[in-house]
Design a protein around this nucleic acid. Sequence first.
DNA 1: ACCATCGGTTCATATAATAAACCAACGGGA
DNA 2: TCCCGTTGGTTTATTATATGAACCGATGGT
Lengths: 269, 269
Amino acid sequence: MGTTSKALTLLDYFTRTRPQIGLSELARLSGANKATCYRLMTELVEHGLAEQVAATKEYRIGPAVLRLAALREATVPTREAALPLLQALAVATGETAHMSHLVAGNLVTLAFAYPATHGMRVMMEDADRLPFHATSSGHAILGWLPGDTVDRILQVPFDTAPDLVPLMPAEVRNRIAVARAIGWAATANTFEADVSSFAVPLFDAQGQVQGALAVAAAGPRLTDATRAAIPRQLIASAREIMALWGGLVPAELSALWRKTETQTEKVQG
Amino acid sequence: MGTTSKALTLLDYFTRTRPQIGLSELARLSGANKATCYRLMTELVEHGLAEQVAATKEYRIGPAVLRLAALREATVPTREAALPLLQALAVATGETAHMSHLVAGNLVTLAFAYPATHGMRVMMEDADRLPFHATSSGHAILGWLPGDTVDRILQVPFDTAPDLVPLMPAEVRNRIAVARAIGWAATANTFEADVSSFAVPLFDAQGQVQGALAVAAAGPRLTDATRAAIPRQLIASAREIMALWGGLVPAELSALWRKTETQTEKVQG
DNA sequence: ACCATCGGTTCATATAATAAACCAACGGGA
DNA sequence: TCCCGTTGGTTTATTATATGAACCGATGGT
């Protein structure tokens, strides 16, 4: 592995639940030598990708990423373009809508929107990695990825929240196949209790899967009518988002979506 | 220089005016060998910090920075906290307000706000580097930086827009000294024609300069009254922003600011 | 048909990364 | 007060990795 990769890998240990990490702890987490870790972090700090908290000497993500993110959005306005449509989707469905992206083999939440109408909503946080195996977004995406990529992703060890029944690998494979066959994915109680989730894949201009658009619904208030309506609303929003991006829906998927759109009833467990 | 630094340096060549760069051009710009450049960019792409446009093979900033930026804001909500105050400042002054940060020796615009009241406004773009020598923000900041750091920054070659009279180094030094002495900086026609700019420095919890808060006013409509009012409004906003951050205004500067705040008239060329 | 340029690759060489051992400083606990 | 574990940081010989000139096939103009 290249030295640069090692340095960049260190950034992956910073998460929402662990935003600041000391030198020794980072070395322990990454398995790298402490001296190596120190040198790499020093270089990241020099470039503003990390910064050191003066009081505790702990490291955290640096301010340079703000400049890079602004530049990214100026170059490819993914998030900015999708946000209003995400908000519209949240209002239309009355549930939480979110968009996640495939970045470096991870599924990352990039944007989300809440409906204004309900007091109870499924809460989201961006910048967090979603598990492929337990989310509808993961299933929706994996159906459109090459087999070996899917294998590589699924062989990453995963854990399910203690209050949930974990999905067996065979079951995950099956759900991916179903998602591919019908053009959208649905899960219930796989990532969070009492949350039903629906997702469709999103594609770039080359017809490559880029991410997923999803609706996360609070289980108790889900009626059969809304279970049927959400996929259609998802598909409509996905089409709009990709129109903005210049994204290309594969012909096969477009046909599946048309089928769902013209159906009056469609329920999936 | 470490390999990681070389890789990260490559990211600096991507700007708003040059958002996508091909391999050969990037090698030419950076002075690195083409093979080296290729390998480094490949590693950056693997981690999502860069991405390659399929059609042209050009590189651009990748989607991973969005996750990092969201994580940064979740850890240190610099931008999010300052934005409403920035908007208030823009409305109060009737001019464009912006906040820039010191990151890795560069002055980067992180946020800005326009007033709703005027048709004509000074336009801003974030993610762009500002020249220290020709902006009030630069002058305001440099007054509170150690001498050797100032020297290092000022010896970077700079160019002024062709329609403007460039500031001589001695003049820049003088303006920095003035800014330090009165607690705020002002420039006119140094960065853009017919734009007057006012700025105050911003500090972190350790009392270190972090950036600057500024107002950029369209020259023609500047009256003596507003020239006097803007610094006071800047100071008030800066105090609010630092209160939110937990920033610490050096006692010396706080005294200077109080002086400006209690004055009824104050005009600087 | 030609030439320049593009992105990408190869491989001997040289340089930079590595890890164990070592500091000094700090913070409990006994 | 002493001890012990832990912290961030540094040094060093050893080793692995980065480097760059030359090369490749493809592409686009002239």
